[in-house]
Design a protein around this nucleic acid. Sequence first.
DNA 1: TTGACAAACTAGCGATGCTAGAATATATTA
DNA 2: TAATATATTCTAGCATCGCTAGTTTGTCAA
Lengths: 190, 190
Amino acid sequence: MGSSERKIREREERERRIVVAARTIAERDGWPAVTIRRLADEIEYSQPVLYSHFGNRDEIVGAVALEGFGELATILRAAIRPSSTPKESVEGVATAYLDFAFARPAMYEAMFILPTGLRFARSDTPAPLRAGFGAMATVIAPFSQDVDTATETFWAALHGLAELERHGRIRPAFRSHRITLLMQMVSGQL
Amino acid sequence: MGSSERKIREREERERRIVVAARTIAERDGWPAVTIRRLADEIEYSQPVLYSHFGNRDEIVGAVALEGFGELATILRAAIRPSSTPKESVEGVATAYLDFAFARPAMYEAMFILPTGLRFARSDTPAPLRAGFGAMATVIAPFSQDVDTATETFWAALHGLAELERHGRIRPAFRSHRITLLMQMVSGQL
DNA sequence: TTGACAAACTAGCGATGCTAGAATATATTA
DNA sequence: TAATATATTCTAGCATCGCTAGTTTGTCAA
Protein backbone atom coordinates (compact mmCIF):
# COMPACT_ATOMS: atom_id res chain seq x y z
CA MET A 1 0.00 0.00 0.00
CA GLY A 2 1.79 3.12 -1.27
CA SER A 3 -0.57 5.55 0.36
CA SER A 4 1.51 5.58 3.51
CA GLU A 5 4.49 6.65 1.47
CA ARG A 6 2.42 9.48 0.09
CA LYS A 7 1.53 10.50 3.61
CA ILE A 8 5.14 10.58 4.64
CA ARG A 9 5.97 12.63 1.58
CA GLU A 10 3.16 15.06 2.27
CA ARG A 11 4.32 15.40 5.81
CA GLU A 12 7.82 16.25 4.66
CA GLU A 13 6.46 18.77 2.22
CA ARG A 14 4.45 20.39 4.96
CA GLU A 15 7.54 20.61 7.12
CA ARG A 16 9.39 22.25 4.26
CA ARG A 17 6.61 24.79 3.92
CA ILE A 18 6.94 25.65 7.61
CA VAL A 19 10.67 26.25 7.29
CA VAL A 20 10.27 28.24 4.08
CA ALA A 21 7.53 30.35 5.63
CA ALA A 22 9.64 31.00 8.72
CA ARG A 23 12.55 32.08 6.61
CA THR A 24 10.45 34.28 4.35
CA ILE A 25 8.74 36.07 7.20
CA ALA A 26 12.01 36.50 9.10
CA GLU A 27 13.74 38.02 6.09
CA ARG A 28 10.86 40.37 5.39
CA ASP A 29 9.66 41.36 8.87
CA GLY A 30 12.29 40.10 11.29
CA TRP A 31 12.32 37.11 13.64
CA PRO A 32 9.89 38.52 16.20
CA ALA A 33 7.26 38.44 13.45
CA VAL A 34 7.75 34.70 13.08
CA THR A 35 5.04 33.53 15.46
CA ILE A 36 3.50 30.10 15.67
CA ARG A 37 0.11 31.56 14.79
CA ARG A 38 1.43 33.29 11.70
CA LEU A 39 3.24 30.18 10.52
CA ALA A 40 0.06 28.16 11.09
CA ASP A 41 -1.86 30.67 8.98
CA GLU A 42 0.77 30.49 6.28
CA ILE A 43 0.66 26.71 5.92
CA GLU A 44 -3.12 26.65 6.43
CA TYR A 45 -3.10 24.31 9.41
CA SER A 46 -3.85 24.88 13.06
CA GLN A 47 -1.10 25.70 15.53
CA PRO A 48 -0.73 22.29 17.20
CA VAL A 49 0.26 20.82 13.83
CA LEU A 50 3.51 22.76 14.04
CA TYR A 51 4.33 20.96 17.27
CA SER A 52 4.06 17.62 15.53
CA HIS A 53 7.00 18.74 13.39
CA PHE A 54 9.07 20.75 15.87
CA GLY A 55 9.34 20.59 19.62
CA ASN A 56 9.19 24.34 20.02
CA ARG A 57 9.71 27.63 18.23
CA ASP A 58 13.49 27.55 18.69
CA GLU A 59 13.69 24.36 16.69
CA ILE A 60 12.02 26.08 13.77
CA VAL A 61 14.64 28.80 13.93
CA GLY A 62 17.20 26.02 14.09
CA ALA A 63 15.86 24.40 10.93
CA VAL A 64 16.23 27.70 9.09
CA ALA A 65 19.72 28.16 10.53
CA LEU A 66 20.72 24.72 9.32
CA GLU A 67 19.75 25.72 5.80
CA GLY A 68 21.85 28.82 6.25
CA PHE A 69 24.93 26.86 7.24
CA GLY A 70 24.58 24.80 4.11
CA GLU A 71 24.30 27.86 1.93
CA LEU A 72 27.17 29.64 3.66
CA ALA A 73 29.40 26.61 3.13
CA THR A 74 28.52 26.56 -0.56
CA ILE A 75 29.23 30.26 -0.90
CA LEU A 76 32.56 30.03 0.90
CA ARG A 77 33.68 27.07 -1.19
CA ALA A 78 32.71 28.92 -4.35
CA ALA A 79 34.85 31.85 -3.23
CA ILE A 80 37.96 29.70 -3.46
CA ARG A 81 39.10 30.02 -7.06
CA PRO A 82 41.76 27.51 -8.19
CA SER A 83 43.64 30.27 -9.95
CA SER A 84 43.89 32.40 -6.84
CA THR A 85 46.94 32.83 -4.68
CA PRO A 86 46.63 31.69 -1.07
CA LYS A 87 46.28 35.29 0.02
CA GLU A 88 43.61 36.03 -2.56
CA SER A 89 41.74 32.94 -1.42
CA VAL A 90 41.63 34.15 2.16
CA GLU A 91 40.43 37.55 1.04
CA GLY A 92 37.81 35.98 -1.19
CA VAL A 93 36.45 33.89 1.66
CA ALA A 94 36.47 36.84 4.03
CA THR A 95 34.60 39.04 1.59
CA ALA A 96 32.13 36.28 0.76
CA TYR A 97 31.48 35.67 4.44
CA LEU A 98 30.71 39.31 5.17
CA ASP A 99 28.63 39.66 2.02
CA PHE A 100 26.55 36.74 3.22
CA ALA A 101 26.10 38.26 6.67
CA PHE A 102 24.95 41.61 5.32
CA ALA A 103 22.83 40.27 2.47
CA ARG A 104 20.89 37.90 4.75
CA PRO A 105 20.81 39.49 8.18
CA ALA A 106 17.85 37.43 9.38
CA MET A 107 19.53 34.21 8.31
CA TYR A 108 22.77 35.25 9.96
CA GLU A 109 20.87 36.01 13.13
CA ALA A 110 19.30 32.55 13.14
CA MET A 111 22.70 30.97 12.64
CA PHE A 112 24.68 32.88 15.24
CA ILE A 113 22.52 34.92 17.58
CA LEU A 114 19.19 33.31 18.31
CA PRO A 115 18.70 30.19 20.43
CA THR A 116 18.30 27.22 18.08
CA GLY A 117 19.12 24.10 20.02
CA LEU A 118 21.69 23.18 17.38
CA ARG A 119 24.65 21.25 18.70
CA PHE A 120 28.14 22.22 17.64
CA ALA A 121 31.43 20.45 18.01
CA ARG A 122 29.79 17.15 18.87
CA SER A 123 29.73 13.74 17.36
CA ASP A 124 26.15 14.26 16.18
CA THR A 125 26.85 17.67 14.70
CA PRO A 126 25.16 17.91 11.27
CA ALA A 127 27.50 18.07 8.31
CA PRO A 128 26.52 21.57 7.15
CA LEU A 129 27.66 22.94 10.49
CA ARG A 130 31.12 21.60 9.83
CA ALA A 131 31.34 22.42 6.14
CA GLY A 132 31.65 26.18 6.51
CA PHE A 133 34.43 25.76 9.00
CA GLY A 134 36.11 23.39 6.57
CA ALA A 135 36.08 25.95 3.78
CA MET A 136 37.70 28.51 6.03
CA ALA A 137 40.26 26.01 7.24
CA THR A 138 41.21 25.27 3.63
CA VAL A 139 42.28 28.81 2.92
CA ILE A 140 43.88 29.39 6.32
CA ALA A 141 45.95 26.21 6.24
CA PRO A 142 48.80 27.61 4.08
CA PHE A 143 49.43 30.28 6.70
CA SER A 144 49.31 28.27 9.85
CA GLN A 145 50.74 25.39 11.86
CA ASP A 146 47.71 24.85 14.05
CA VAL A 147 44.98 25.08 11.44
CA ASP A 148 42.02 24.57 13.74
CA THR A 149 42.99 27.28 16.18
CA ALA A 150 43.94 29.67 13.40
CA THR A 151 40.64 29.04 11.64
CA GLU A 152 38.74 29.62 14.85
CA THR A 153 40.50 32.95 15.27
CA PHE A 154 39.92 33.94 11.65
CA TRP A 155 36.28 32.98 11.89
CA ALA A 156 35.91 34.95 15.13
CA ALA A 157 37.35 38.04 13.48
CA LEU A 158 34.89 37.74 10.62
CA HIS A 159 31.98 37.15 12.97
CA GLY A 160 32.97 40.16 15.04
CA LEU A 161 33.26 42.36 11.96
CA ALA A 162 29.83 41.23 10.81
CA GLU A 163 28.16 41.74 14.16
CA LEU A 164 29.67 45.06 15.11
CA GLU A 165 28.87 46.50 11.71
CA ARG A 166 25.35 45.07 11.74
CA HIS A 167 24.75 46.80 15.07
CA GLY A 168 26.18 50.11 13.91
CA ARG A 169 29.19 49.88 16.22
CA ILE A 170 31.84 50.33 13.54
CA ARG A 171 31.89 52.43 10.37
CA PRO A 172 30.34 50.71 7.34
CA ALA A 173 32.38 52.84 4.95
CA PHE A 174 35.61 51.28 6.22
CA ARG A 175 34.66 47.67 5.73
CA SER A 176 37.13 47.03 2.97
CA HIS A 177 39.88 48.71 4.98
CA ARG A 178 39.23 46.34 7.83
CA ILE A 179 39.33 43.36 5.49
CA THR A 180 42.64 44.60 4.13
CA LEU A 181 43.96 44.84 7.66
CA LEU A 182 42.73 41.36 8.44
CA MET A 183 44.46 40.09 5.32
CA GLN A 184 47.76 41.62 6.36
CA MET A 185 47.40 40.01 9.72
CA VAL A 186 46.69 36.58 8.30
CA SER A 187 49.32 36.57 5.63
CA GLY A 188 51.87 38.10 7.95
CA GLN A 189 51.94 35.97 11.03
CA LEU A 190 48.98 33.67 11.34
CA MET B 1 10.95 74.98 48.71
CA GLY B 2 13.41 72.10 49.01
CA SER B 3 10.81 69.36 48.93
CA SER B 4 10.84 69.35 45.15
CA GLU B 5 14.57 68.64 45.24
CA ARG B 6 13.91 65.77 47.57
CA LYS B 7 11.32 64.45 45.14
CA ILE B 8 13.75 64.63 42.28
CA ARG B 9 16.33 62.84 44.35
CA GLU B 10 13.91 60.13 45.38
CA ARG B 11 12.92 59.68 41.77
CA GLU B 12 16.53 59.22 40.76
CA GLU B 13 17.02 56.73 43.54
CA ARG B 14 14.00 54.79 42.37
CA GLU B 15 15.39 54.73 38.86
CA ARG B 16 18.68 53.41 40.18
CA ARG B 17 16.82 50.68 42.00
CA ILE B 18 15.14 49.64 38.77
CA VAL B 19 18.46 49.39 36.93
CA VAL B 20 20.13 47.54 39.80
CA ALA B 21 17.22 45.11 40.01
CA ALA B 22 17.32 44.50 36.26
CA ARG B 23 21.01 43.79 36.38
CA THR B 24 20.76 41.54 39.41
CA ILE B 25 17.95 39.46 37.97
CA ALA B 26 19.63 39.23 34.57
CA GLU B 27 22.89 38.03 36.07
CA ARG B 28 21.17 35.46 38.23
CA ASP B 29 18.34 34.19 36.00
CA GLY B 30 19.03 35.57 32.54
CA TRP B 31 17.43 38.44 30.62
CA PRO B 32 14.14 36.67 29.82
CA ALA B 33 13.49 36.63 33.57
CA VAL B 34 13.73 40.42 33.66
CA THR B 35 10.05 41.22 33.22
CA ILE B 36 8.27 44.47 33.96
CA ARG B 37 6.14 42.73 36.54
CA ARG B 38 9.12 41.30 38.37
CA LEU B 39 10.95 44.63 38.37
CA ALA B 40 7.81 46.31 39.68
CA ASP B 41 7.66 43.76 42.48
CA GLU B 42 11.31 44.33 43.26
CA ILE B 43 11.01 48.10 43.66
CA GLU B 44 7.61 47.77 45.33
CA TYR B 45 5.71 49.93 42.87
CA SER B 46 3.13 49.11 40.25
CA GLN B 47 4.12 48.41 36.68
CA PRO B 48 3.14 51.73 35.10
CA VAL B 49 5.66 53.49 37.34
CA LEU B 50 8.43 51.86 35.36
CA TYR B 51 7.13 53.54 32.24
CA SER B 52 7.53 56.94 33.86
CA HIS B 53 11.25 56.20 33.98
CA PHE B 54 11.79 54.27 30.77
CA GLY B 55 9.94 54.29 27.49
CA ASN B 56 9.96 50.51 27.23
CA ARG B 57 11.74 47.38 28.38
CA ASP B 58 14.58 47.81 25.89
CA GLU B 59 15.53 51.12 27.47
CA ILE B 60 15.96 49.38 30.81
CA VAL B 61 18.32 46.90 29.17
CA GLY B 62 20.06 49.92 27.64
CA ALA B 63 20.53 51.53 31.05
CA VAL B 64 22.21 48.37 32.33
CA ALA B 65 24.33 48.18 29.17
CA LEU B 66 25.48 51.75 29.69
CA GLU B 67 26.74 50.83 33.13
CA GLY B 68 28.55 47.92 31.54
CA PHE B 69 30.33 50.11 29.04
CA GLY B 70 31.57 52.27 31.88
CA GLU B 71 32.87 49.26 33.77
CA LEU B 72 34.46 47.71 30.71
CA ALA B 73 36.27 50.97 29.98
CA THR B 74 37.60 51.06 33.53
CA ILE B 75 38.74 47.46 33.33
CA LEU B 76 40.47 47.94 29.99
CA ARG B 77 42.24 51.08 31.16
CA ALA B 78 43.39 49.26 34.29
CA ALA B 79 44.83 46.53 32.08
CA ILE B 80 47.32 48.98 30.60
CA ARG B 81 50.28 48.91 32.94
CA PRO B 82 52.84 51.70 32.45
CA SER B 83 55.67 49.21 32.80
CA SER B 84 54.36 47.00 30.03
CA THR B 85 55.73 46.78 26.53
CA PRO B 86 53.34 47.76 23.73
CA LYS B 87 52.81 44.12 22.92
CA GLU B 88 52.13 43.20 26.54
CA SER B 89 49.64 46.04 26.71
CA VAL B 90 47.68 44.70 23.77
CA GLU B 91 47.66 41.25 25.28
CA GLY B 92 46.57 42.62 28.63
CA VAL B 93 43.66 44.47 27.08
CA ALA B 94 42.65 41.45 25.01
CA THR B 95 42.68 39.17 28.03
CA ALA B 96 40.83 41.69 30.18
CA TYR B 97 38.18 42.09 27.49
CA LEU B 98 37.51 38.38 27.23
CA ASP B 99 37.60 37.93 31.00
CA PHE B 100 34.91 40.58 31.24
CA ALA B 101 32.77 38.91 28.59
CA PHE B 102 32.91 35.50 30.28
CA ALA B 103 32.63 36.73 33.85
CA ARG B 104 29.52 38.82 33.14
CA PRO B 105 27.69 37.12 30.28
CA ALA B 106 24.38 38.83 31.01
CA MET B 107 26.02 42.23 31.02
CA TYR B 108 27.88 41.44 27.81
CA GLU B 109 24.62 40.38 26.24
CA ALA B 110 22.98 43.66 27.18
CA MET B 111 25.91 45.59 25.71
CA PHE B 112 26.28 43.77 22.43
CA ILE B 113 23.40 41.44 21.65
CA LEU B 114 20.08 42.68 22.94
CA PRO B 115 18.19 45.63 21.51
CA THR B 116 18.84 48.63 23.73
CA GLY B 117 18.11 51.72 21.70
CA LEU B 118 21.60 53.02 22.50
CA ARG B 119 23.11 55.22 19.82
CA PHE B 120 26.68 54.66 18.76
CA ALA B 121 29.02 56.72 16.63
CA ARG B 122 26.82 59.80 16.90
CA SER B 123 27.26 63.28 18.28
CA ASP B 124 25.05 62.42 21.24
CA THR B 125 26.79 59.15 21.99
CA PRO B 126 27.33 58.87 25.77
CA ALA B 127 30.93 59.07 26.93
CA PRO B 128 31.13 55.51 28.36
CA LEU B 129 30.35 54.16 24.92
CA ARG B 130 33.46 55.85 23.56
CA ALA B 131 35.76 55.22 26.51
CA GLY B 132 36.20 51.49 25.95
CA PHE B 133 37.07 52.08 22.33
CA GLY B 134 39.56 54.71 23.49
CA ALA B 135 41.36 52.26 25.74
CA MET B 136 41.68 49.78 22.90
CA ALA B 137 42.89 52.50 20.54
CA THR B 138 45.59 53.45 23.02
CA VAL B 139 47.22 50.04 22.93
CA ILE B 140 46.72 49.54 19.21
CA ALA B 141 48.15 52.91 18.19
CA PRO B 142 51.84 51.87 18.36
CA PHE B 143 51.17 49.19 15.76
CA SER B 144 49.10 51.07 13.27
CA GLN B 145 48.88 53.98 10.90
CA ASP B 146 45.10 54.16 10.78
CA VAL B 147 44.36 53.74 14.46
CA ASP B 148 40.57 53.89 14.22
CA THR B 149 40.27 51.21 11.58
CA ALA B 150 42.86 49.03 13.27
CA THR B 151 41.05 49.38 16.60
CA GLU B 152 37.74 48.49 14.99
CA THR B 153 39.31 45.35 13.57
CA PHE B 154 40.95 44.42 16.86
CA TRP B 155 37.70 44.99 18.71
CA ALA B 156 35.81 42.90 16.19
CA ALA B 157 38.23 40.01 16.66
CA LEU B 158 37.76 40.16 20.44
CA HIS B 159 33.99 40.37 20.11
CA GLY B 160 33.94 37.43 17.75
CA LEU B 161 36.12 35.36 20.07
CA ALA B 162 33.84 36.17 22.98
CA GLU B 163 30.64 35.39 21.12
CA LEU B 164 31.68 32.21 19.38
CA GLU B 165 33.06 30.80 22.60
CA ARG B 166 30.01 31.86 24.60
CA HIS B 167 27.84 29.99 22.11
CA GLY B 168 30.02 26.89 22.16
CA ARG B 169 31.15 27.32 18.58
CA ILE B 170 34.87 27.23 19.31
CA ARG B 171 36.90 25.25 21.83
CA PRO B 172 37.14 26.91 25.24
CA ALA B 173 40.36 25.07 26.03
CA PHE B 174 42.16 26.89 23.22
CA ARG B 175 41.28 30.41 24.28
CA SER B 176 44.80 31.38 25.21
CA HIS B 177 46.12 29.94 21.95
CA ARG B 178 43.74 32.15 20.02
CA ILE B 179 44.83 35.19 22.01
CA THR B 180 48.45 34.33 21.25
CA LEU B 181 47.58 34.10 17.59
CA LEU B 182 45.79 37.42 17.73
CA MET B 183 48.82 38.96 19.38
CA GLN B 184 51.13 37.73 16.66
CA MET B 185 48.78 39.20 14.11
CA VAL B 186 48.65 42.57 15.79
CA SER B 187 52.31 42.94 16.55
CA GLY B 188 53.30 41.60 13.17
CA GLN B 189 51.40 43.57 10.62
CA LEU B 190 48.56 45.57 12.06
C1' DT C 1 -20.64 -1.73 9.34
C1' DT C 2 -18.06 -1.31 13.14
C1' DG C 3 -14.23 -0.41 15.88
C1' DA C 4 -9.40 1.18 16.44
C1' DC C 5 -6.20 4.40 15.48
C1' DA C 6 -4.19 8.54 13.66
C1' DA C 7 -4.59 13.32 12.48
C1' DA C 8 -6.23 17.89 13.11
C1' DC C 9 -8.91 21.24 15.44
C1' DT C 10 -11.13 24.18 19.07
C1' DA C 11 -10.51 26.33 23.05
C1' DG C 12 -7.93 27.95 26.62
C1' DC C 13 -3.95 28.46 30.15
C1' DG C 14 -0.46 31.25 31.96
C1' DA C 15 2.57 34.50 30.63
C1' DT C 16 4.30 38.81 28.27
C1' DG C 17 4.71 44.29 27.24
C1' DC C 18 2.14 47.99 27.61
C1' DT C 19 -1.82 51.48 28.59
C1' DA C 20 -6.44 53.77 29.57
C1' DG C 21 -8.88 55.51 33.16
C1' DA C 22 -9.86 55.71 38.07
C1' DA C 23 -8.17 56.82 42.59
C1' DT C 24 -5.16 58.99 45.62
C1' DA C 25 -1.83 62.11 47.32
C1' DT C 26 0.29 66.70 46.92
C1' DA C 27 0.59 71.46 45.82
C1' DT C 28 -1.68 75.94 44.74
C1' DT C 29 -4.95 79.31 45.11
C1' DA C 30 -9.19 81.83 47.06
C1' DT D 1 -8.61 76.87 56.18
C1' DA D 2 -11.26 75.11 52.35
C1' DA D 3 -11.54 74.34 47.55
C1' DT D 4 -9.42 73.52 43.44
C1' DA D 5 -5.83 72.09 40.37
C1' DT D 6 -2.08 69.15 39.39
C1' DA D 7 0.92 65.25 39.87
C1' DT D 8 1.46 60.65 41.12
C1' DT D 9 0.24 55.99 41.53
C1' DC D 10 -2.77 52.13 41.10
C1' DT D 11 -6.28 48.84 39.32
C1' DA D 12 -7.76 46.54 35.69
C1' DG D 13 -7.45 44.95 31.28
C1' DC D 14 -6.05 44.63 26.16
C1' DA D 15 -3.69 42.20 22.65
C1' DT D 16 -0.40 38.93 21.92
C1' DC D 17 2.76 35.27 22.83
C1' DG D 18 4.27 29.98 23.22
C1' DC D 19 2.26 25.98 24.19
C1' DT D 20 -1.21 22.08 25.37
C1' DA D 21 -5.38 19.34 27.04
C1' DG D 22 -9.30 17.38 25.33
C1' DT D 23 -12.43 16.77 21.54
C1' DT D 24 -13.70 16.07 16.92
C1' DT D 25 -12.83 14.42 12.45
C1' DG D 26 -10.92 11.42 9.15
C1' DT D 27 -8.86 6.89 7.69
C1' DC D 28 -7.99 2.49 7.69
C1' DA D 29 -8.64 -2.89 9.05
C1' DA D 30 -11.54 -6.47 10.69
